[in-house]
Design a binder for these strands. Structure first.
Lengths: 221, 221
DNA sequence: TTACTGATTATGGTTTCCCGTAAAAAACGG
DNA sequence: CCGTTTTTTACGGGAAACCATAATCAGTAA
């Protein structure tokens, strides 16, 4: 049974709606966090006081309003709270529709549900919470085939570093030097070229410009 | 005085919150549209029946759920409704923070307010509606300096065509052929190079990869 | 140690991109 | 119509990217 919920969402308007949904479900103990750090702290404190949360509902993207934050997005928050309270149920409520990210959240961090912000999100969330309270998982139908096709290309840290440098305007020939500075191994120009080739092939791109565009589209940049 | 409002927003959760805000303001006649086409139609119908709306609150981005739509985003919806009912007050309610787009909406389409989705959006929207009902404009403070610095680089259709082709993976040397196919003039490789140079300079980019990334960031791609 | 395998790095040739300059074309004014 | 200015195009040298191949290195097992 779910009695105590923490909502982690920075948009006030969405919080209003979430609050209503939770009230409708008869859940009275609802806390809100507008920042990931805040959420992390609240989970910690609640656990230490023996009044731990039963469910965490969190967004993935958070606006940067200038205040210094250690955890800046839901993808980092989730492993952080799992670390503190492994049995906490987690529902992700986000507009993000990125197979790689979602797959990781489900398979690696064992989230209990995912609701896509959209034309029916409030009703869906209601269903999701109900399901999760019965120890069931809840994911959109569209996820099923997404999970099957292991289409999600695995970008290693190495790949990401290369892509980031490219997007920052570093010439390809200078990338090895930057990689070495950050202790990446391999770091030769050949390795960079080889990896770029692989990524382009994987994403059906013929040029680096297109690769950057694709990476922006699927949300890894 | 504002009595009749049309809310154009595809996220159910946000609609819930907007409804509450409008109710708080004592506005009882509130319609919702989940698609831009639907909104356009409703404005038309209401006007023809002599029961026109006083205020339109609209998002800018709408999820594509597969259904065929003529108008797919708020940027297109706004001129379309202005065309039908020029005196309609318009408040944009969006997370989009793109100088070029905002500038265009304010200067060219004379929107009455803009509220950024975020940590205080519900309260801000309340204020915005109040202001607009008094025939005042409402924009975030952050917009003032944004509007001053004419930083928003003017991308011509020509520029856009080049950027799009690059992002699609067309090699620079093949771009002239594509431009000619679409009756762009000039179309020579030199002209393409010159324009790319200009754009890179304007956006402080050293390489095309970085240019593509920047264009994605500011929302023109 | 030696032989073998796979990964990384080095090298060279070809294409593409970059940038400056010159030729050609178009726009403009008298 | 001609001359001037501006824009567009053409061309060429040098740098970077691309691609295939060869050399080197690291790890493993006999």
């Amino acid at each position: 049974m779910i009695n105590k919920v923490l909502v982690v969402e920075d948009h006030e308007s969405v919080n209003v709606s979430l609050q209503r949904t939770l009230t409708e479900l008869g859940i009275v103990e609802v806390d809100h966090a507008y920042y990931c750090d805040e959420a992390h702290r609240k989970v910690n404190v609640a656990l230490q006081r023996g009044q731990s949360y039963d469910l965490l509902i969190t967004d993935l993207s958070f606006d940067d309003d200038g205040s210094e934050q250690k955890i800046t997005d839901g993808e980092s928050l989730i492993p952080a709270v799992r670390n503190v309270q492994p049995d906490l149920k987690i529902i992700v409520f986000s507009a993000k529709n990125n197979p790689a990210v979602i797959k990781k959240l489900i398979e690696k961090h064992a989230i209990d549900g995912y609701v896509l912000k959209g034309r029916n999100d409030a009703k869906e969330l209601l269903t999701a919470i109900t399901e999760v309270s019965r120890n069931q998982l809840y994911f959109p139908r569209s996820f099923q085939q997404m999970m099957k096709q292991n289409n999600a290309f695995d970008f290693t840290d190495f790949d990401l570093a290369i892509i980031r440098l490219l997007a920052e305007g570093v010439p390809q020939k200078d990338i090895p030097a930057h990689l070495q500075k950050n202790n990446f191994r391999p770091s030769s120009l050949s390795s960079v070229e080889k990896r770029l080739n692989k990524m382009r092939e994987e994403l059906n791109c013929t040029k680096n410009e297109q690769l950057i565009a694709s990476c922006k589209d699927i949300g890894i940049l």
